[in-house]
Design a protein around this nucleic acid. Structure first.
Lengths: 198, 198
DNA sequence: TGTACATCAGTGAACGCGCGTTCACTGATGTAC
DNA sequence: TGTACATCAGTGAACGCGCGTTCACTGATGTAC
């Protein structure tokens, strides 16, 4: 076709973007390269001009997803995110909207199911994203007067509860919508409610 | 071959058993019926004498996994489980051994990643298993003096934290083993530590 | 600045392979007389 | 109780299909002179 280098870079981003959306929605294994390239607006053969294998694409997707979420716990606008209170962030994370928006939500939750089975490079991106997220929450805890050890422990426990609640609520949303919503409400209550120790 | 009905029922169980192990280890999508039947000791063609489709097998696996876990939160011996304290159960659930034993551990955690993508019948089994688990924990909370509403909320929050911690710790075990263990420790601390409100 | 040519992101057919599923066939089990 | 036959859990080859990947080819872009 003959394409400018700038255009080629944009096309590569389009492929990664389509892949991220499809991978989250259907799982990495369930998305074929033919369907993926079609979704990005190309034909199958062009894939290998941009990536040396599907595994390399998965790593690129994970790297991008993690980088995009730096500064925004649950996706969405970064500037607005930074100005939100911790309580508001939890309420947004454990909202019905975030539960239903797998394609754009928190990548640590969206890829948690796939993470143990993807390639080493992609796993490393995932682990870095998790470590960064916990570090950010730890810093916030220290600013509120916790010791570094307390803050780290609290950040890990709180984030695990957020992810666990979201994942379970997504897992049963079709079969038992009432349970799905009750889980979200219980999570919000536990993280924002009467407790002041974490 | 000519097989007795008793033998046929045993063979069916062997298929479901092999499927449960392989599905948990590699994900439902990544396990083919040829490999599955071979693992169970049969050839591929016999599969459809027992199940009308792969989806039907997934439902059977989920039903069995959920039924087997009734009375045993983290797998293992039911009688011993019943005599354990809540603290000991949490320590076992969030142990390195349980993290590394995906094939035999808690099915709610083991299938959480696949749950949103499996068939309706299997999803219903998963949701029932989750509801039962929470109900069991709620009953225990009421016995310790909580109101039914408090106990339900606490059970959901606690179980979500257990599952979230286990899933995140499994997700990063290869890429960042230290983080994986720190997550487990933080979860044990949060669930068994100084807090007395949940 | 204009021309000649190498580069490389596209296309789309094709590769071997494993998928879920179907089929004709086998032969011991279990039943009917 | 013994014989004749239907049942059905096995086998293993084959089905169409989509997978990840490779390939020969195209033609505008970008470079060298």
């Amino acid at each position: 076709m003959g394409i400018s280098r700038e255009q080629a870079a944009e096309n590569r981003e389009a492929i990664v973007g389509a892949a991220e959306r499809l991978f989250r929605e259907h799982g990495v294994d369930a998305v074929g390269l033919t369907a993926l390239m079609k979704a990005a607006g190309f034909t199958q053969g062009g894939f290998y001009n941009h990536f040396k294998s599907k595994d390399a694409l998965v790593a690129a997707v994970m790297g991008r997803a993690v980088a995009a979420s730096e500064g925004a716990l649950a996706g969405g606008d970064v500037a607005r995110e930074a100005s939100m209170s911790r309580e508001a962030r939890v309420d947004r994370y454990l909202s019905v909207a975030h539960r239903d928006d797998v394609a754009c939500g928190c990548p640590m939750a969206g890829f948690a199911g796939d993470a143990p089975r993807i390639g080493d490079e992609a796993q490393a991106c995932y682990a870095k994203g998790l470590a960064d997220t916990i570090e950010r929450m730890t810093t916030a805890g220290i600013e509120q007067g916790l010791s570094p050890a307390q803050a780290t422990q609290a950040a890990m426990a709180r984030f695990a509860q957020m992810v666990g609640t979201l994942l379970l609520s997504r897992a049963v949303v079709n079969a038992d919508p009432a349970l799905s919503e009750a889980l979200l409400a219980a999570g919000r209550q536990a993280l924002n409610g009467e407790r002041a120790d974490a």
